[in-house]
């Protein structure tokens, strides 16, 4: 039987699906029996999902135009 602490130590790899089948089975058994770990598993999974779904804000127009200006100068200097 896994302890909660052992479960937590493997949680990240479990969520990334980078563990072997045997350990995976043990972890799955643990969350069906331990409501606290199930909640932690579920909310951690959703934490990652929320961040992954976050699109970058459009880059502010002034920042972009300064970037493009700087690059144009650079390109001109490098010359062709």
């Amino acid at each position: 039987m896994l302890t909660c602490k052992e479960f937590l130590n493997e949680l990240s790899e479990y969520l990334d699906e980078s563990i072997d089948a045997e350990l995976r089975a043990k972890l799955e058994k643990h969350i069906t029996e331990c409501p606290n770990c199930w909640v932690i598993f579920d909310t951690t999974r959703r934490t990652i999902q929320i961040y992954k779904g976050m699109n970058p804000y459009p880059i502010p127009a002034d920042v972009e135009s300064r970037l493009m200006n700087a690059l144009e100068k650079k390109m001109a200097a490098k010359g062709r």
Binding site: L8, N9, L11, S12, E13, I40, T43, T44, T47, Y51
Partner: peptide
């Protein structure tokens, strides 16, 4: 890996 685990758990905590 170990930093990622801790980061994820800390964020989970904050978002909860």
């Amino acid at each position: 890996k170990s930093r990622l685990l801790r980061a994820r758990l800390q964020l989970r905590e904050k978002l909860t």
